[in-house]
């Protein structure tokens, strides 16, 4: 394990060094993002927004919907599109951390929040914003339907399967992590 950690630190140092060298060539990616070698994310995905199928099946649209813009909502008002992002956050470090924020850029979502869904003994579902999600030391936490999710509000465009969304996660330790989440179909 020690060897792995040393190796990992080495790799991280190398990556940092390389990215420092080639900083000018790397498109416009900000290189200032502090990363934590202990934290990583896998299986990140975002549920497709609900408008996605409507456009595709416009040909057999009900007569009552004629003239309605099936592709999306008007620009003046909040889009009404919401969705959730799900993933597994892993922490290989010896100290626990907490996910305290997430952002997706104004071109993607008007607001991004951390939410928890619970289903009580009466099968009542409650979703509420929470301040943080604990990521245990040498462990992981899963954000999944029926549990934690990152809520994207006022999503600015249709998110269709195959698209990707970049989220920046912020942790209590000060670490940030850029995550590329794949958009998956509703089913």
């Amino acid at each position: 394990m020690v060897v792995r950690r040393v190796l990992l630190s080495g790799v991280v140092a190398l990556v940092l060094a390389l990215s420092a060298c080639s900083g000018d060539e790397e498109k416009a990616t900000p290189t200032a993002t502090p990363t934590s070698p202990a934290l990583s994310v896998r299986d990140a995905w975002v549920r497709a927004t609900i408008q996605q199928m409507a456009g595709a099946e416009q040909s057999d649209t009900a007569a009552g919907m004629a003239g309605h813009d099936m592709g999306g909502m008007s620009d003046q008002e909040p889009s009404g599109r919401v969705t959730g992002a799900f993933m597994v956050i892993e922490n290989s470090g010896d100290a626990p951390d907490r996910l305290i924020g997430a952002s997706a850029g104004p071109e993607v979502a008007g607001a991004v929040e951390i939410h928890e869904t619970t289903v009580d003994e009466n099968d009542v579902m409650r979703m509420r914003p929470i301040e943080a999600i604990e990521v245990p030391a040498r462990g992981s936490v899963e954000l999944k339907p029926g549990g934690y999710h990152i809520m994207l509000l006022d999503v600015q465009r249709d998110l269709n399967p195959g698209d990707t969304v970049t989220l920046t996660l912020t942790f209590a330790s000060g670490a940030t992590l850029d995550v590329t989440a794949e958009v998956r179909a509703l089913e």
Binding site: R47, I50, G80, V82, T83, G84, H115, T117, V119, M125, M127, P145, G146, H149, M151, L152, L186, E187
Partner: peptide, 13 residues
């Protein structure tokens, strides 16, 4: 409700 990102689409799926 349609602003529900989690339980509702899961159940409809």
């Amino acid at each position: 409700y349609t602003h529900c990102p989690d339980i509702c689409p899961t159940t409809l799926a």
